[in-house]
Lab assay of single mutants.
Amino acid sequence: RKEMTAACTPRRRIINLTSVLSLQEEINEQGHEVLREMLHNHSFVGCVNPQWALAQHQTKLYLLNTTKLSEELFYQILIYDFANFGVLRLSEPAPLFDLAMLALDSPESGWTEEDGPKEGLAEYIVEFLKKKAEMLADYFSLEIDEEGNLIGLPLLIDNYVPPLEGLPIFILRLATEVNWDEEKECFESLSKECAMFYSIRKQYISEESTLSGQQSEVPGSIPNSWKWTVEHIVYKALRSHILPPKHFTEDGNILQLANLPDLYKVFERC
């Protein structure tokens, strides 16, 4: 597991931080080997919608929660590849102030007048994250320049770009939802926020969305749709870069829909 690298990086740093090793061990302890084997050997059937997909393993048909699986995938990559990410360069710098204002204007932020003026909160978020810029760049390849612009994001899987519609809320939550006081809790909560931002979430995906850094293989055609990215990038990574937690067998994120021999018997009677 320590050699797990989802995106190509030129050289690998050895990380011996106790906090990170502890988080890696927790993933191992909570892992479910049968689910790992199923995901490793599954045959992708198709997307139901951005949140759900169908896959077959041996004779069984499964309904998989793409949102939760991708979130767990990105969390584990962030923990196992800690401080070893490439950088996704933004085509132009994104001012943190503008991103924070967009987030505060969104109902998702939960902002009320009692929280104070949005401009003041946005300025605080910019200054707060600028103070964390060195650590964010060093460990997470999340790059913020001296003017308070976001200029780079971590490359977690080759050819995958997170849904940038979720970027404003991500920046807001970096400042408000991460435990910045304790090292282990900081790395864990920061990785979880980043994983949620990178995950496939239906509120940020339309039929026209593209999450891939590449064009489709047909010359002159439109960019790959999110469905292509889910199948050929995300579920491909799920084959080798995730140890599913045991609770996925109990919380409805992986559901067995049918045993195909039983279905064949039904059709034979028709």
Rank of each mutant, 00 (worst) to 15 (best):
I14S: 13
K2A: 10
M38R: 03
Y124N: 11
Q256Y: 10
N253P: 10
G116K: 07
L136K: 00
K118A: 06
W52V: 12
E29S: 07
P154Q: 01
Q203V: 08
I200D: 00
E165M: 09
N65P: 01
S19G: 05
M101E: 05
K131E: 11
K184P: 04
N224Q: 11
I254C: 10
A175H: 06
G86H: 08
S212F: 14
P219Q: 12
A7V: 08
L17H: 05
H247K: 14
K2P: 09
G148A: 09
V20Q: 00
S141L: 03
I15G: 04
S91Y: 14
I157W: 03
I77R: 13
I79N: 01
Y264A: 15
L96A: 03
E72R: 05
S191K: 01
Y235S: 02
E143P: 06
R13I: 08
Y139S: 03
K132I: 02
T18D: 12
A6M: 05
D158P: 12
L90F: 15
R89M: 15
I144M: 11
P95A: 15
V234L: 09
P245R: 06
H32P: 01
E72H: 13
V218N: 13
L155M: 11
D115S: 09
E123T: 14
L39N: 02
D138W: 04
E165I: 09
V178D: 00
K131F: 12
E165H: 06
G120F: 10
I205L: 10
L190N: 02
L260W: 06
P244T: 03
M4P: 06
F187D: 00
P154V: 01
G213M: 14
I205A: 05
M135W: 05
K236V: 05
E37Y: 05
S221Y: 13
Y204I: 03
N84F: 02
E113K: 13
S109H: 09
P223R: 12
L61G: 04
H247D: 13
Y160K: 01
N159V: 04
F267P: 15
G213D: 15
D138L: 05
G252T: 07
S43G: 12
S22D: 11
E92N: 07
I242F: 09
Y80D: 08
K131M: 13
E165Y: 04
P261N: 14
D98F: 05
Y198K: 01
S43C: 11
F97Y: 14
C8Y: 10
E182Q: 14
L150K: 00
N65H: 07
K118I: 06
I79H: 01
P162C: 02
K236C: 06
F85V: 05
S206W: 08
N49F: 02
T67M: 04
G252H: 07
T5D: 06
Q56Y: 10
E231S: 03
G252M: 06
L167E: 00
I144D: 02
V230N: 01
W52T: 03
L64Y: 04
E123L: 09
F197E: 01
D105A: 13
V234E: 00
E92M: 08
I157M: 06
Y198P: 00
G220A: 15
L156K: 01
Q24H: 05
Y139G: 02
N159K: 14
A103F: 03
T176I: 12
D262Y: 12
S199D: 02
E92V: 10
L102I: 11
D181C: 09
L150H: 03
Q203N: 14
E3I: 11
L90S: 03
L99S: 07
L211M: 13
V218H: 14
I169P: 11
H247T: 14
K68S: 09
E119Q: 12
E37T: 10
T9H: 10
D105N: 12
L23S: 04
V178I: 10
S91V: 11
Q256C: 15
N179I: 10
M4A: 06
Q24P: 01
I77Q: 03
E193I: 07
P95M: 11
E231L: 02
A83M: 06
F197G: 00
H241Q: 06
I27V: 13
D251G: 07
Q203H: 12
P163N: 08
E25V: 10
E147H: 10
W111C: 10
F82Y: 03
N179F: 08
F44R: 01
E182R: 10
A237K: 13
F85H: 06
T67P: 02
V230K: 01
L136C: 04
E143G: 06
A55P: 01
A103T: 04
V178G: 01
N84V: 00
I200P: 04
L172G: 05
F85W: 00
G116L: 07
P50T: 07
A100P: 02
L104K: 00
Q51I: 05
I169A: 12
P223H: 11
Y198R: 00
G148E: 09
N159D: 14
F97V: 09
L211H: 10
L164F: 14
V34E: 14
D138F: 05
L136R: 01
C186Q: 04
P162M: 02
C47R: 03
S109P: 07
K68W: 03
K227F: 04
V20Y: 01
I125K: 02
K246A: 13
K130D: 11
L90E: 00
R11Q: 07
S19A: 07
E72L: 04
E182F: 14
F267Y: 14
P50D: 02
Y139M: 05
L164N: 04
V234Q: 01
Q24G: 04
H247M: 09
A55G: 06
D181Q: 14
V126I: 05
E92D: 11
E114I: 15
C8F: 07
F248C: 04
T66Y: 02
R239W: 00
G148Y: 05
P162Y: 00
L96Y: 00
L243I: 08
S225Y: 11
D251I: 04
L243K: 12
E231C: 03
K246G: 12
Q56K: 15
P95H: 11
I200A: 03
V45G: 04
L243H: 10
H32V: 13
L104W: 05
D145K: 00
L129E: 01
T249C: 10
Q214N: 08
S191R: 01
V126K: 09
V45S: 03
S216P: 14
E185K: 11
L142W: 02
Y139C: 05
T59C: 08
E250R: 06
L174V: 06
K2H: 15
I27H: 01
Q51C: 07
N159P: 03
V161A: 13
K192S: 06
S141F: 02
V266S: 15
I27A: 05
N49T: 13
K132D: 00
P93A: 15
L190C: 07
G46C: 06
E143W: 09
W228K: 07
V266A: 12
L17S: 07
E134Y: 06
A122D: 01
S191N: 01
L21E: 07
A237V: 05
L142V: 07
E217T: 12
L35R: 00
P219T: 14
H32G: 13
E185F: 08
R11I: 10
L96K: 02
N259F: 04
L155C: 13
K184I: 07
R12K: 09
R12Q: 13
F170H: 03
G166A: 14
H232P: 01
N41W: 06
H247L: 07
L174E: 00
Y75D: 00
